[in-house]
């Protein structure tokens, strides 16, 4: 039995759900949005080196380990909010639906001050699974290169 194609709307909804889960640091819910073959990368172009760099790369098990360890670490106080902009359909096939979505990540500190922390784009591949649509691949192409004190939580 072949699985149905994932519609643009369903894919976009999954991307939004995954973002909300990360915003809430509900990592179990985020991982539930990912397929067993999930692959995650953060890529950044360096004009200094005149090449692309990889700043984070994990499969599902790697992401699981990364996220499980977050609570143990010293990190910047406050919370992140991922604001999704427009999505465009890049590819739709029986295998997957690929969306390109702009994203801004805002940081709000403990005094309630909000600043833009990062800007970039998600390139998400979404595939149908037995239990619904799942993220097959997420590539974050960051425009922001100065991430201040960094983050233990992925974008």
């Amino acid at each position: 039995m072949s699985l149905p194609e994932v519609s643009f709307e369903a894919a976009r909804s999954l991307v939004a759900t995954a973002c909300l889960a990360l915003d809430e640091e509900d990592f179990c819910s985020f991982l539930a949005c990912c397929s067993d073959d999930f692959h995650y990368t953060i890529r950044v172009h360096s004009p200094e080196l005149r090449r692309d760099m990889t700043w984070l790369e994990h499969d599902l098990a790697g992401m699981q380990g990364l996220l499980e360890g977050v609570r143990d670490h010293l990190r910047r106080q406050g919370r992140l909010l991922r604001h999704l902009g427009a999505s465009v359909l890049v590819e739709a096939s029986a295998q997957h639906t690929v969306l390109d979505t702009s994203v801004l990540v805002l940081h709000t500190d403990l005094e309630g001050v909000t600043r833009v922390w990062a800007a970039g784009r998600y390139r998400d591949a979404v595939a149908a699974g037995a239990d619904g649509a799942r993220l097959l691949n997420r590539r974050v192409q960051l425009h922001t290169r100065d991430l201040g004190t960094g983050s233990h939580v992925p974008i």
């Binding site: 700043w55 984070l56 790369e57 910047r76 004190t149 983050s151 233990h152």
Partner: peptide
């Protein structure tokens, strides 16, 4: 790259904490 990023990248386990300190 993975080894570098584990400790020293902006999403690593070491350098961001140094910056906070």
């Amino acid at each position: 790259e993975r080894h570098h990023n584990q400790y020293w990248g902006p999403f690593g386990r070491n350098v961001p904490e140094d910056m906070l300190a």
